[in-house]
Design a protein around this nucleic acid. Structure first.
Lengths: 220, 220, 220, 220
DNA sequence: AATGAATGAGGATTCATTCAT
DNA sequence: AATGAATGAATCCTCATTCAT
């Protein structure tokens, strides 16, 4: 994947390039896990798709669980990158316009790197008794995203207290998850980004509802 | 394995025992599938938990796929029963109050029989290449629920056309799915019913937004 | 292995004969374990030698550990059978002659069915952290033999108390184990039975030594 | 891995570090082999316990077999050291007292460095088809000990011919092996040294028995 | 004097499924 | 209406060993 050196076309090489192999394995595993879930991601398949023998996979990752945890991490990094594009907000934009811009970005990021959420949701639902590291990794990173959202809400919605902000974040994530699932079912004929934009009004409505229930913080 | 008394043949029972076994298998499979998903539901586990040998499972069901499709059906019936409790709506209730009552019922039904949705979502996300009958069964029954919701929305929201009603149903289901997932993550310390009630304002907000975009149907 | 019925040369047969298969597996496993020890007894080897696929072995035995525990049991039964031949003791035989006859029988039994002790000693020495069931089975059955020997000594050696009898049994077993090991090293050119006979004088000498140390039980 | 200071080069050390690694590997391998036998001593485990990569083990030893042969050698050296403490024998000590002192020393040496015998016996019993070098090494060194014992017996027991001395040595080693095994089974609550002392009377009894059978060598 | 990376063979075990009874 | 027994393919993972650096 890394661009090959232009001159002297592979004279040596072939033995020992740790990081490259690791990346190949991760790439294969990410693709497969995104398609078939935890159980469906067999080491044999990853081996075949990455071109490395199964035993080499075990050199790079302790076991299947650790591999899938790394997959979660990797796809999370990708997704976070997508979420880092600055949001274009015009001077004097309304609350709704701001919200809409934010949701649009989320939808786009999800469209571009859906592996994180898809695999994560699968792991979340399949509550297998042994709590794989991969699941823990997902919940951890998801928790970070949640915290950021809470902080952002607490800052922008003056009439929400901490608990209210948390509630609003819960709803936002839930709605995002739900739309994502809907798109997984319906496939390409559903415009995910546009639906995310529509979600903005829903979030604001919930915010107002929560604020009305907040025991009048700064209200005199 | 059942002890067989030599004399005095039991008057009733003993016949139609086939169905009893079938139910035992289904019950075990439902529980396991709810916990561990499609792959995690091994025939050996179902056999162990139901107390019947694996070969008996194959007497009752063509294969694992058919068994899981039956599980989906069974859990759907359960869930539909929960959704059939009549909604108590007072005379002259507001749009919001009606919506809230409906959402409350949904939340409750999900709380009581979560297997259908949990297993269904898992099947949905695990897009295995062979499209198991179980997944199809889920999407089919889910589609029916969707159609009913569309019909209901088309009737109650005069300013929404057919397409609008479908959109609104899409959002409603998405939000429900999302909250359900959130509760799966958070566990018992999240009051699912109350969150579903709050969702009512979100749904109405989206309805209004969609109506505003509708090319003025019966508007005078 | 069981002699086949003389008439009607295998018309049906082939499917399902549980016990026969179990015996085939056990026989193969016993032979291999006797040759190569716990680790050396791979399921693949047992499968090959017994003619049944590996998965069938798992139908009959929970896992490798259970299989080897069964092997221990089986070889113990064999060995106990060898130890059950009545000892020919002439009227008015001396203590030494009696002891010699007993040791001779032990040597013979060990010569005919050495698997129990060989495998058992291997398991005993290899104190692997997980304490396999096979090891436990060996120690258990060995314990039974020990108890019988103690009872026998307590009865025949009037000047030994219970503790003394236990000590004597300990020495007897130790010497027997040791000679067995020696024969494993030296192979056929060592006459095990004759060596066991010689052991008789050693046992008696120890018995006397222990008795001398016993705090004069019935001694007036 | 060791931190390399940029300036002020350490005066001593740093060279001949190869031997240090070798010792680390040997120490780890000895410990593991004593616990788990030949098969149980995996290169990976030795690598982990010694802190050196597996490939380094292959730098120091040709293969696993050579490593375990070295382990045998090493533990033999240790054991021989224990056996070299001079035996304190008083002027005019009886045959029994001399024997007892010798056995006591043996018991002590075995208690302090049991690895040699434990591993050796395991290798002896596990008669794997390929006859590993480790097994050969054990039998060789054990043979040396045997020869010394024969020489000693031939010298001290005037009424035993060469064959008789060999027989007596065989019995002595067998009894020692047997007691050692007993102690492996019973653990710390068995006083190995005291049991070895008691063995003295058994050895002498056998010696007399053998002598009686010897065709009157120097007997006048 | 060492080691990171790789690798094929084989380890135990579970899988869904079948079939004779 | 059921089930004991069997089975081939697949599962994850560990093995001893090698080799380029």
């Amino acid at each position: 994947m890394r661009d090959v050196e232009p001159s002297t076309p592979e004279p040596r090489r072939r033995r020992a390039n740790g990081d490259e192999s690791r990346q190949k394995i991760l790439a294969a595993a990410t693709a497969i896990a995104g398609e078939r879930g935890y159980d469906g991601t067999s080491i044999a398949l990853v081996s075949e798709r990455s071109g490395l023998p199964a035993s080499s996979i075990y050199w790079h990752f302790k076991d299947k669980d650790a591999l899938l945890a790394a997959v979660i991490d990797r796809s999370w990094v990708e997704w976070v990158a997508g979420m880092s594009t600055p949001v274009q907000i015009e001077e004097g934009a309304s609350r709704l316009e701001i919200m809409r811009a934010l949701m649009r970005r989320t939808g786009r990021a999800l469209l571009e790197s859906p592996d994180f959420l898809r695999l994560g949701l699968m792991l979340t639902l399949e509550r297998r008794p042994d709590e794989p590291a991969a699941r823990t990794a997902f919940l951890h990173t998801r928790g970070e995203t949640f915290d950021q959202m809470v902080a952002s809400y607490a800052e922008h919605f003056a009439d929400l207290d901490e608990a209210g902000a948390r509630e609003l974040a819960t709803f936002t994530m839930a709605m995002a998850d739900g739309l994502f699932v809907a798109r997984e079912i319906r496939g390409d004929d559903m415009d995910l980004v546009q639906h995310f934009e529509t979600l903005a009004v829903a979030v604001l409505a919930v915010a107002d509802d929560l604020a009305a229930r907040t025991p009048s913080r700064t209200r005199v």
